Amino acid sequence: MTNVNEAVKSRYGYAMTVLRGLVKTDFKLRYQGSFLGVAWSVLRPLMVFAVMYVVFARFLKISDGTPTYPVVLLCGVVSWQFVTETVTMGLRSIVDRGDLLRKVHFPNVIVVVSASLGALISLAINFVVVLVFAFFSHVQFTWEVLWLPLNLIQLYVLALSIAMICATCYVYFRDIAHIWDVVQQILFYCMPIMYPLSYVLTHAGTYGELVARVEVLNPIAQCIQDIRHNFLAPATTPTVWNMFSNPWAKAFPIAVTLLLAWFGVWLFRRNSSKFAEVI
């Protein structure tokens, strides 16, 4: 056992040291010069949530009709902001760390992973806030909350995979940043984040069920719905698992997640040796 530990340390010890250093540096620099500092990691999603809740739930009366809807909305906002933060920061990470990549030899993927871990720290802080809101909203937790770690792992793998693909492309094509800005806006409105999926089912007319099913096949939407379902509202949150009877349809978002992970790793490894030269 000792020999195995020594072998792991000798092979990955330096990489882990670099990763820890980058994560600490990125997280400190993110809020450097800010009066509120790390508090912005909580305040930003809370502000977005407040705007969405006032506009959509109060004025437009878009809700699932339950008293737990505000915390379900907050959970969706927090989960989506983790994805956008991971991809946005990871997308530019290789180019922004170009000087470091040319001077120090370490696996380039560490730079993208460090950006994702910074976003993961913010997500952990925000989930504490969601938990506090859940208690005040009298959320009745069930045994299904045990599935939550798997849902979060899938969401992290999805976000990191997209970040690796975008980071690789950004080295060669700077237009990827502008394309991602547009794509994330499209994704945001095409997923049940600011509105509940039950609202689509009841207010989209003849094609309501079809639209809802297409939306939930998106692996990001599937993850967010699963997180909401297992964590907060299993009785009122539709998911791919209870909207489809076909097992192949249920497996589709998981298959897309695995495909993106494979493609992201393959594309990044194929091009990583050229990054220092191209940058």
Rank of each mutant, 00 (worst) to 15 (best):
V129A: 09
L152F: 11
L160N: 10
M164Y: 06
W147Y: 13
V139P: 10
L152T: 05
V157K: 12
E144R: 11
H138E: 10
N151P: 03
A163E: 03
P149F: 13
V130N: 01
I165A: 02
I165D: 01
A167I: 05
E144C: 03
W147P: 03
A167G: 02
Q140G: 09
S161M: 04
A167V: 05
V132L: 14
S137D: 13
L146P: 05
T168L: 00
T168H: 00
S137P: 05
L146R: 09
H138M: 14
L160S: 06
L158A: 05
C166G: 09
M164C: 06
L152I: 12
W143N: 12
L152A: 04
V157P: 05
H138L: 11
T168F: 00
V157N: 02
W147M: 14
V157I: 15
C169M: 05
V132E: 00
F136L: 15
E144V: 08
Q140T: 14
A167R: 01
I165L: 00
F133A: 04
F136W: 13
M164T: 01
A163V: 02
L150I: 12
T142W: 10
W143V: 13
L148V: 15
L152G: 02
V157A: 13
A167F: 02
V139R: 09
Q154E: 11
A159V: 05
I153V: 15
L155R: 08
C169V: 13
V145T: 12
L158S: 01
T142P: 12
F135C: 10
N151D: 15
F133V: 12
V139M: 12
W147R: 12
V139Q: 11
I153K: 10
Y170Q: 00
L155P: 03
E144F: 07
H138D: 11
Y156C: 08
V157S: 07
V128K: 03
N151C: 14
Q154Y: 14
L155Q: 10
W147A: 13
V129R: 04
A163N: 03
M164S: 07
V157Y: 02
W147F: 11
F136H: 08
V132N: 07
I165F: 00
A167S: 06
V128T: 06
C169L: 13
I162P: 00
Q140V: 15
A163G: 07
F141P: 01
V157H: 06
Q154G: 13
L155K: 04
I162Q: 00
H138G: 05
C166D: 01
W143Y: 09
W147H: 13
L155S: 02
I162K: 00
W147S: 06
S137Y: 12
S137Q: 07
L148S: 07
Q140N: 12
L160Q: 03
V129N: 02
